[in-house]
Amino acid sequence: MTRAILRTLAILAALAVTLIPILWMVSMAFKPPSEWQAAGEALTWVPRAPTLDNFRYLFGQGGSDLIATLDRTAVKPILSSLLSASVGTLIAMTCGTAAAYGLSRFGSGANLPLALIQLRLFPPMAVMIPVMMMWAFLGLMDTWFGLALVYGIVTLPFAFWLMKTFFDDMPKEIEEAALVEGCTRWRVFTRVTLPMMAAPLAAASLFVFILNWSDYLIALLLTTREWVTIPVYMASLSSSMTGQLYGAKAALGLIAAVPPVVLGVLIQKHLVRGLTFGALKQ
């Protein structure tokens, strides 16, 4: 009995610690500027006068008395994050799935598993100078597709490893049956294997998308103005008059946090596999 109570208490404490930072940001996002900072009085945990102004402000509508209107709204950064993360996911998943199938069924590219793990081991910061030089040369700096290409490479290890474990787990009998029927190997791959793998493909894609969406450092280095992503834009949000735009930043943080949290819950049962490069299958 006491054990059950102790466990409940421990879990409640963990839930509180988990939720307080998130709830504080949510609360901040709905506070008017006057409540952003505790001015002499007690801190406001729940907004006294909840408002959507912070969100309106991000999209360029009426700055309040305290803050001037934004010269650059959050629309383009959101678009940039969406485009670069999606196309990056497409690149990683296309190359990763094909390579995983090639290795799983034909034993080609035996060097890839280790090479890709090593790619993941190194801090991205340590290869960014040559990438910046190449990108400047190719005219890819400050473009969403330049960013997407790097994302595609950075998340390729996850796409490859995830799909490899999924292919390894798949029974080969169905493919063999299709081969006996006279299908070419390519047709078997595109018409039999891929449709069967629709659910794993979707889970892996969402996982890779979350990773791409979460990036900050790469976008910080490769985008400067036109195509900055949400986190880069968020960090630059401040006004000369009031300094930190707490509420607006919190509102943007909320916008950035919602998609991965929702997608993450959707693919919950694949998370362990994804995060451990398929080593654990839960």
Binding site: T18, I20, W24, A235, G253, A257, P260, V261, G264
Partner: peptide, 27 residues
């Protein structure tokens, strides 16, 4: 589901959350 939420929050946003939490007049 709630306990695994933090790792899904964009790290930069998590950084901003804690930036706010650790303000001298903060929570």
């Amino acid at each position: 589901s709630i306990l695994i939420m933090p790792m899904m929050v964009v790290p930069a946003v998590a950084g901003y959350m804690f930036f706010m939490l650790f303000q001298s007049g903060g929570p």
